[in-house]
Design a protein around this nucleic acid. Structure first.
Lengths: 287, 287
DNA sequence: TCGATTTTGTAATCATAGTTTCATTGCCGG
DNA sequence: CCGGCAATGAAACTATGATTACAAAATCGA
């Protein structure tokens, strides 16, 4: 017997007494919200006594009111949660419990959570900031996030000039600070364990009047206090390491937005880049 | 001030303390369900004390926890009775056609397609290959995929020895070939436009008897003809560039699988690494 | 590094929710 | 009209939830 409370109510409806039927009616009236308050309020609303409520939920098979309420919450959660991640398995050739499926499940969850937390206005503002060639852009990453910062840098370079990459793990980064001017934009990736040098960099950049865009994890790098804009991405995964997929997604989406905002310029620069590639014969000549 | 609790949370986010932010994160994590239980359970889930919960909801402008909870219930009721804004978008604060939602849609599609095409047996075989310290591992990436190859290299380095990164865009890579011995594993990332130097590298590695693992796009790099194992990932996105999120996901899953297969060794190496970090004070001392 | 200040959790307290007991009520068959 | 039984709610009780007071810990500024 693990039906929903609603089903249980209907099933036992005939065996209920007068006051209990009255109560059942009140619950079903706006199901399941009315059941989420206190037992007292439910009793008041149904115009029965609280013991009646207890007796009835026990008839339904719950040990008591709290258990009944927990069941309601679970149902509601299932009803609300996004059907997109309800997919039973991603790789249908692999069993459900294969790492491929488990890991992907986690990552999709991360993506969903991350997107839910991003303020579109912030996102648009940052995209506009990065598209504007009036100020320079500096990009910094830590040990793990270096790959991401490099990736962002690589693409932004095509879209605009005045983009510089600062690898915080090297000791060359103080030099880069020299070039930072008030109004410039510093994009920093920082996830646990948060690096001291990165924090220092953010601090100094802020002191120089730069605007900081922070991409961090759900526990928030200490840098967030200096940051003009801050995006927190979920990074949990069934692994000894964190997953940066959500951050990668955010980065790519940002790149796409910036590119869209500065399409004229991007097209020209891409064209020039192509020509150079042709001359250097880095790429194959077909497709 | 009669915003939703969610809006209030975001609004005061900057003025919150560490524990409070942690709590806010837990509430937002599956909003609003997590707030509907008892204050104790919410505190437990957020790993803070109950007084912290009380203090924060008061900061939000509610007289106490019950009032906060009542507000949540009201919101939920309003949301449920309004089937109009049934959320099938990722960022529910952004319109469906916002780039954030469009891009994410595309990426999820990519992930789905990619996973559907991966042979779990191949995946397991490659994981086993990478976990086995009997042979050396070489990792190479192209212009765009360099970030990915670096990422894989960084993690594999912690799990095992004899891992080398070959940046194919430099002209130093022929030297790396000298070290390749029959049976060694070469992991190559190659997406369009496929680079000549990468192809050459694959060719020569094959000639030296190496086993090649190729991570490529859905159109398949010409390298696939030499590859022992080949994974093709979908990389389409509403952007002038491709999305490498699916490849990132595959890489991270591989890392997790390898780490699981070689957990004893990984744990030791991670421990040693931690010690070195402690000594060099790269990271902050807390969490 | 040290004192001041803020933040945070522990423990005590208070309030309310949930349960149980039991007397009252109403209903039915005699 | 009366005994017997089920149904119900009042009230007492218990458990848990929420709040407060305070002390420990962390952080900050000098």
């Amino acid at each position: 017997m693990d039906d929903t409370a609603q089903q249980r109510l209907k099933k036992v409806h005939d065996t209920l007494t007068r006051a209990e039927r009255q109560l059942a009616g009140a619950i079903l009236e706006n199901y399941p919200m009315s059941g989420l308050g206190s037992i007292t309020r439910l009793a008041e609303k149904a115009e029965v006594s609280t013991p009646t409520v207890v007796r009835m939920v026990q008839k339904l098979g719950y040990s008591g009111f709290p258990e009944f309420q927990a069941a309601l919450r679970e149902e509601l959660e299932a009803q609300i949660s996004n059907p997109i991640d309800k997919r039973d398995s991603w790789s249908n050739t692999a069993p459900q419990e294969h790492l491929l499926n488990r890991f992907t499940d986690a990552v999709i969850g991360n993506i969903r959570q991350t997107l839910a937390h991003i303020d579109p206005a912030d996102f648009d503002a940052v995209a506009a900031l990065l598209a504007d060639e009036a100020q320079s852009v500096f990009i910094a990453g830590g040990r793990i996030t270096h790959a991401l910062s490099e990736y962002l840098h690589l693409h932004l370079q095509v879209i605009r000039g005045r983009v510089q990459h600062i690898p915080t793990t090297s000791n060359a980064w103080p030099h880069a600070l020299l070039d930072i001017e008030p109004g410039d934009v510093v994009v920093i990736y920082d996830i646990r364990r948060y690096e001291n040098s990165t924090l220092k960099l953010a601090e100094m950049a802020a002191a120089r009047g730069a605007r900081t865009v922070l991409v961090t994890d759900q526990w928030q790098s200490p840098i967030s206090r200096f940051a003009t804009y801050s995006f927190s991405c979920r990074i949990e995964a069934p692994s000894a390491w964190d997953s940066t997929v959500a951050m990668m997604l955010l980065s790519e989406t940002l790149i796409a937005a910036v590119q869209e905002a500065a399409w004229e310029r991007t097209r020209d620069r891409m064209g020039a880049l192509e020509e150079m590639f042709d001359e250097t014969r880095i790429f194959r000549k077909f497709v």
